[in-house]
Structure formats: structure tokens, C-alpha cells
């Protein structure tokens, strides 16, 4: 597996905040196909983690396309050297979605795919929540609201050291309830951290209820803007739209970028989609096989 080079995401604009990257190249057919193939395989990995002790399938499926896009087209992460000091950072703050990250890491060659079969085994570290002993996992998470502040620290560190690394942190929409996120954004804006991008997996649910039925978050863009960030709202399942948005980073020089990605919980398997009761899923093998068939039927590569 190789990363698709993205020539337009030059290093210097994000660092000195002096300008935008150039207009993005259109997502070519081959890349688009690769993204869709990878997403399909990652979703298969995610569904299989529902076996045995189960996993947070709904929360993972909503961010599969985002993670596949980021690791295929945006993040400079070398599978042969995942700890390279000049890598870009991806922090998964909604840690319970980690099956999606495991799947992507397997697809880009960082994680041996057979280890995914050892989900929750006591002799491995493929857990319900991220563990940095897995190559490519940057930090522990699972306790919500913890990694946006960490990402701000890393972005600040890169800035102070003059390093070109870009920092992306993916947060769930529900976890925006935690005040720590907003404290972190105040600091990110104060230090003009335009090397920081917050991706919100806006699947509209938290745990067992829709976010707007619990503690309403909207208007979300206005909230982030009020905190000094620049925002873009995009479909989190549309690769062309994601390419358009991520090639524009930073959205504004001198400001943290926030990409609010509208997504569907359980995306890819219609019978699991947008269901309040499909956050955590534990399933029997035949049930998983039936979801896998459903997934392949509704996500046939070659048509769009």
C-alpha cells in the first residue's frame, strides 16, 4: 500500500499561516475507486469486531470514510516508518470508534490484518479503546473530551519547534458536551494554530439518543466560529467533497480549522443506519455475515 501523493498540500502555508494551498486537483478516478474499495474493506473489518464481546460499530461506521480519506490522501504517514518525526498526526478522540482506525491501519499496512481477529483477546492490545502499542495509534483515548487538548499541545509544540507536521483530531459530536474541548479551542485560537484541524464526526447521535434531543449542539458552525476557528461543513461520506475541503486547509491563515463532517451512524449497512440502538453492537456470526452481504450489495464498486 502506498499513499497517494498530494502535491498541493505543501508544508509551509500551514506553518507560517501566510496563505492557502493552491486549488485542489480533482480526485481522479483511480483514487476515487481506491478510496471506495478501502472503505468497503474497512467496513468489513469493523463489522467483524461485533463478534465475541462486541464493539461500537455504529460510531465506527460513521467515520470510516473520513479516516480512509485522511490516511489515503491527506496525512503524511509512512507505513514503513509510522513514528517518523515529520509525520502528520491523527488523534482519535472518539476512542470507541477505534475499529474504524484499526481497519484503516490494516489497509495501509501498519497493522497485520490477522490481528483484527484478535479483537479483545487478552494476549493482544486490540481493545475497545485505542492503545498506542498498536502501530499508528498516537494516544490513549476513550474517556471523552481528552484528545482535543492533547492535539492543541502537539500543534503548539510543532509550531514552537518550527516543525511542519499537521495535526488532525477527530472528535465525536456528542463529546462536544465536554467543556475541555472548548477550553482547548480558546487556546488554539489564541496561539493561531492553523496547523490544527478538528474533524467533527457529526453523526447526530451520542450514546443512545440523538444529540439534538439531549443537549442540542446546533448551530455548531457558529459556535466554533465564535471560538475563533474557521469552519467548513461537508458530507463525511463524499470523497470529492472531502478532497475539496481538505485541500483548502488551513481554511483561514492564523486560525484553527474545523471540518464538520455530516455523517450517518452505522453508514454502509442500511439496517444499522441512523439507529439510536446501534451504537454498541454485539452480534452472532450469522448476523455479521448478513450485514456483510448487505454492505456489499449496497456498496458495489464501479457504480456511483
Amino acid at each position: 500500500m502506498t499513499l497517494i501523493p498530494v502535491p498541493s498540500t505543501g508544508v509551509s502555508p500551514a506553518v507560517n499561516g501566510s496563505g492557502r494551498t493552491p486549488a485542489h486537483p480533482a480526485l481522479d478516478d483511480a483514487t476515487h475507486r481506491l478510496l471506495r474499495e478501502r472503505s468497503l474493506r474497512v467496513r468489513e473489518h469493523v463489522l467483524r469486531t461485533a463478534a465475541g464481546g462486541g464493539s461500537f460499530v455504529g460510531a465506527a461506521l460513521s467515520c470510516v470514510d473520513l479516516l480512509v480519506y485522511l490516511y489515503t490522501c491527506f496525512l503524511r504517514v509512512d507505513p514503513a516508518d509510522p513514528d517518523a518525526p515529520d509525520r502528520d498526526y491523527l488523534f482519535l478522540s472518539k476512542g470507541h470508534a477505534v475499529p474504524a482506525l484499526y481497519g484503516v491501519l490494516a489497509e495501509i499496512g501498519l497493522l497485520a490484518p490477522q490481528r483484527l481477529r484478535r479483537h479483545l483477546h487478552t494476549d493482544d492490545v486490540i481493545y475497545w479503546h485505542p492503545n498506542p502499542q498498536v502501530p499508528g495509534v498516537e494516544f490513549y483515548s476513550g474517556s471523552l473530551g481528552h484528545l482535543l487538548p492533547v492535539a492543541v499541545g502537539v500543534a503548539l509544540d510543532c509550531r514552537l519547534a518550527g516543525n511542519p507536521n499537521r495535526v488532525v483530531v477527530m472528535v465525536g459530536d456528542g463529546e462536544l458536551n465536554e467543556g475541555s474541548n472548548w477550553e482547548a479551542l480558546l487556546v488554539a485560537a489564541a496561539y493561531r494554530l492553523d496547523n490544527l484541524t478538528v474533524v467533527v464526526d457529526r453523526n447526530g447521535f451520542q450514546a443512545n439518543l440523538p444529540t439534538e434531543a439531549l443537549i442540542p449542539l446546533e448551530p455548531l458552525e457558529a459556535k466554533f466560529r465564535a471560538f475563533g476557528c474557521e469552519t467548513a461543513r461537508v458530507s463525511g461520506h463524499d470523497f470529492a467533497a472531502l478532497a475539496f475541503t481538505f485541500h483548502r486547509l488551513p481554511l483561514r491563515g492564523g486560525a484553527p480549522s474545523v471540518v464538520i463532517a455530516d455523517t450517518v451512524r452505522g453508514r454502509g449497512v442500511p439496517s444499522l443506519e441512523a439507529r439510536a440502538d446501534r451504537w454498541f453492537v454485539k452480534a452472532k456470526p450469522d448476523e455479521i455475515e448478513s450485514w456483510l452481504r448487505e454492505l456489499r450489495q449496497t456498496n458495489q464498486i464501479g457504480e456511483r
Binding site: G95, L120, N131, S141, G142
Partner: peptide
């Protein structure tokens, strides 16, 4: 406070 210590099982070290 519920789910103390090992009672939370698979959630692991963070929980």
C-alpha cells in the same frame, strides 16, 4: 460511582 475497577472489563485502562 458504578463499574469500579475490573468491573468495567473490556473498556480497559482508560475506564
Amino acid at each position: 460511582g458504578t463499574h469500579p475497577g475490573y468491573d468495567i472489563g473490556p473498556d480497559g485502562g482508560t475506564h
